[in-house]
Structures are given as C-alpha cells and as structure tokens.
C-alpha cells in the first residue's frame, strides 16, 4: 500500500485526528493489515504520536500489525457450534489450508481465526469466509467453499 493511497484515505476524513480509528479501519479493510510505513504516514499527517497509534492498533482485535491473507476464515467454536462438531470442521480447514488459528499462509491467501460466537447458533457449525456465513457446514463441505477463493 503506497503513501498516496494512505493519503487518500486520510483526506476522506479531512485529516481529522478524531477520525484516527476510522482511518486505521480504512487501511485495514483495504490492505488487510497495517504496515509500519502507513502508520508513520498517518502519524505525520494527523499529528498524532506514533506511540498512541501503536497503542490503539494493538488494543483492538480488528487491527493487525502483521500481514494477513486476502481471505479471512472465521470458524466458530462457541458452545452451540462446538457440540455440533466445530472441532472437526476446524481440523479439516487446518488440513486444507495448512495453517493453525491465528496464522496466515505463505501465499497470503488465507488467514484462519477461531471466534466464540457469530450470532447464528441455530446454523451451527458455522464457518465465515470474508464476512459470508456458511451455516450447518459439514467438514467435507469446507473444501467446496474454500476452492472458490483465489
């Protein structure tokens, strides 16, 4: 992500320091993570100390300071999904992608995370890819979903 694009996002919020979190979210959504250069640029343009940006960026789970994949897989391991076999779904996805929860693969294709509830327990076990919910997913079906992503 180059500085021009970061500047565009900052300009969208009129360079207001109070919009810091919105700006960081904008960069995070587009780039999937917050590179140090981008944070330094934001710090300079908004006149907010880097230490404060670092505090905020590490505080919220929505932000990542390490590269993330193009597609984010969330697997629910909450109680309802757990009793309906979320662990088996998770194991299958781990085998398919070759990564553990919290990790990103080398091609930056997938990042895998476990979550504790996606708010649709009746659909358990639930897998969410890039915000799209796949309910009542059988371990065998996960491959069909994931093969659609590049």
């Amino acid at each position: 992500m180059d500085n021009d694009r970061v500047d565009q996002i900052i300009d969208k919020y009129q360079g207001e320091a109070s919009s810091l979190i919105q700006i960081l979210l904008g960069i995070q959504t587009e780039n999937h993570w917050l590179p140090k250069e981008a944070l330094e640029r934001v710090s300079e343009k908004l006149q907010v100390p880097l230490a404060r940006i670092q505090h905020i960026a590490t505080f919220y789970k929505a932000f990542s300071l390490v590269p993330k994949g193009r597609h984010e897989i969330h697997i629910c391991v909450g109680t309802a999904c757990h009793v309906r076999g979320a662990t088996r779904v998770l194991d299958t996805v781990r085998d398919l992608t070759g990564i553990k929860p919290g990790e990103t693969d080398l091609d930056l294709k997938f990042s895998l995370e476990t979550v504790n509830c996606l708010g649709c327990c009746a659909l358990g076990p639930v897998m969410e890819v890039d915000g799209k919910t796949h309910g009542k997913i059988a371990p065998g079906k996960t491959a069909d979903v994931l093969k659609n992503f590049e």
Binding site: P49, L50, A51, R52, Q54, H55, T58, F59
Partner: peptide, 9 residues
C-alpha cells in the same frame, strides 16, 4: 516526545 507507549491490552 512520546518515545514510550502502552501496547496491547
């Protein structure tokens, strides 16, 4: 100077 800050939570 803000040379030191908190990280994480």
């Amino acid at each position: 100077k803000n040379a030191v800050g908190f990280v994480d939570r």
